[in-house]
């Protein structure tokens, strides 16, 4: 299979960047996942082939990293942080609110594939807690109200 031209360009650069091409595995999977939506069997076989590793070796890696997934997430993957600093500043309130508002639970995708939700570990926004991420986009000092604003914006088709 082939990926989009910009991604192919990125991959080509990656393969030149590492003394051993297997080093490109983790980032290649990440960028491929972003483009395809999930790590499908086809993506896995393709990347295994390009890097000269076995499908099993790729699967071992995918299973290890928490950002990699083999099933599609929602168009907007909402990640709420509840680790210590977030917890101290209301992270669980946001998490409960998120579940209620989106009507889905941890690692679930809503019916139309628009939103998915995940309670995640520390993301390095401790001083601006509680934090959340929608796809790769950061939101700091989240409250139930600001959560609603972000979600509504996305529902209107705005946002990232």
């Amino acid at each position: 299979m082939t990926f989009s031209a910009p991604l192919e360009k990125r991959f080509a650069r990656m393969l030149q960047s590492y003394p051993q091409k297997r080093s490109a595995l983790v980032p290649m999977l990440m960028y491929a996942q972003d483009e395809v939506g999930s790590l499908t069997d086809e993506v896995i076989a393709e990347i295994a082939d390009r890097l000269g590793v076995t499908v099993l070796q790729v699967n071992e890696v995918i299973g290890y990293y928490s950002m990699m997934h083999k099933k599609p997430l929602g168009q907007y993957h909402v990640q709420v942080y509840t680790n210590i600093s977030c917890m101290l500043r209301g992270g669980f309130k946001v998490w409960d609110h998120a579940r209620k508002t989106l009507g889905i639970g941890h690692k679930q995708v809503d019916a139309d594939g628009r939103f998915s939700l995940e309670e995640v570990e520390c993301i390095g926004s401790c001083c601006w807690a509680p934090a959340m991420q929608v796809n790769y986009d950061y939101h700091h000092n989240v409250t139930p109200e600001s959560f609603d604003r972000v979600i509504n914006e996305l529902k209107k088709g705005g946002g990232q």
Binding site: M30, Y31, E60, V61, Y64, Y65, M67, C122
Partner: peptide, 24 residues
């Protein structure tokens, strides 16, 4: 180089494994 979600990869030898395209 992009990681992919693993606290353990902050440990230096796990990071190197990850950088070599393996489990951290």
């Amino acid at each position: 180089h992009s990681g992919a979600g693993a606290y353990e990869c902050g440990e230096e030898s796990a990071l190197l494994e990850s950088l070599e395209g393996k489990r951290g």
